[in-house]
Amino acid sequence: MKTYKMPKNVFPDFIELIKTKGKLFGPVKQKSKYSFEEIKNLQELDFDYQRTIMGVKKFLTPPKYKTLTFDKEGTKDIIDEPETNIVIGVHPCDIHAVKILDRLFLGNIKDPYYASKRENLIIIGHSCLPDDKCLCQSTGTDMVEDGFDLFLTELADNYLVWVGSDKGLSLTIAAGELLTEEISDEDIQEYVRWQQKRSSMFKTVMPSFKYMADIITLNYDSEAWEQFGEKCLSCGTCSLVCPTCNCFNVDDKILMNAEGGFRERMLDSCTLPYYSMVAGDHDFRPDRTTRLKLYYTHKLKEYIGRWGQPGCVGCGRCVTYCPVDINVITVSEALFGEVCETKEVCE
């Protein structure tokens, strides 16, 4: 992997260059929240953010989009995403989330809609400093080696630019003199100091997260599920903001003229009623408790069995956005806390 250095004073030129390659999106502050929005001018870009409400999945598996139209003549797929989207300022956790989505949608059975959106997406990562809701150190997703096209690590006066793909390499070639390969010993020292500082900043460290899958299995009938089920609002927020949750629903919609229509795909949530309903109106998970248990066992246990890694990237979105404090931290702590005999063992 090639690495370059870019002085901060040429960053505006770099952005101008990137904007010629596609539609640029980046973190923008909107009142109390951050969101990946189209960047018209550089001032809107705000890298000093913790997390956007929706992750990069909003580009890859958008909340609601048409996949097909139909009329008297037949059907027509809507697959092509002609435009290149570039999203800048993506944190390591969100890049890990894209890697998880890639495995699911581009595995043995390729999802053509996702594939075309993914092919046309350029990801430029950006370094970050954690807050008390980030648990990526515990999920092992605080560092990222691949899954991006470029990654910018912000130092005092420079960016270190890591190249992660051919597309990224093309961008660096186009950037020409804005980048330099000359990285001095001082730069390396600064980088190491920055990494050490970052590591020491994590307030939420959960050593038990490493074997949470086992805890879930061993404590499968935990009473904690009932307690969370009583509180859960079944609002779906946790899974909609989760950067790796990708379940979708499909509905055919007929136009008012009743002569044609379209097929729509929309993000779904396993915490909603009827999510597990099958033909014959049998519902496997009619209550909140079992739906919530499905959500967390899938995310923290089943993913590990299938991919060797949890479905949680520690971004802290559920921690931030659940209105009733049901999230990976509180659920893990409750399940783990129950099986600890003494407080000393738990710590």
Partner: peptide, 18 residues
């Protein structure tokens, strides 16, 4: 299709804060 969901789902589709 009968598929009830709360306003929160559409609210997150729109990317709103809570």
């Amino acid at each position: 299709q009968k598929y009830p969901m709360p306003v929160c789902v559409e609210c997150k589709y729109e990317g709103n804060d809570c």
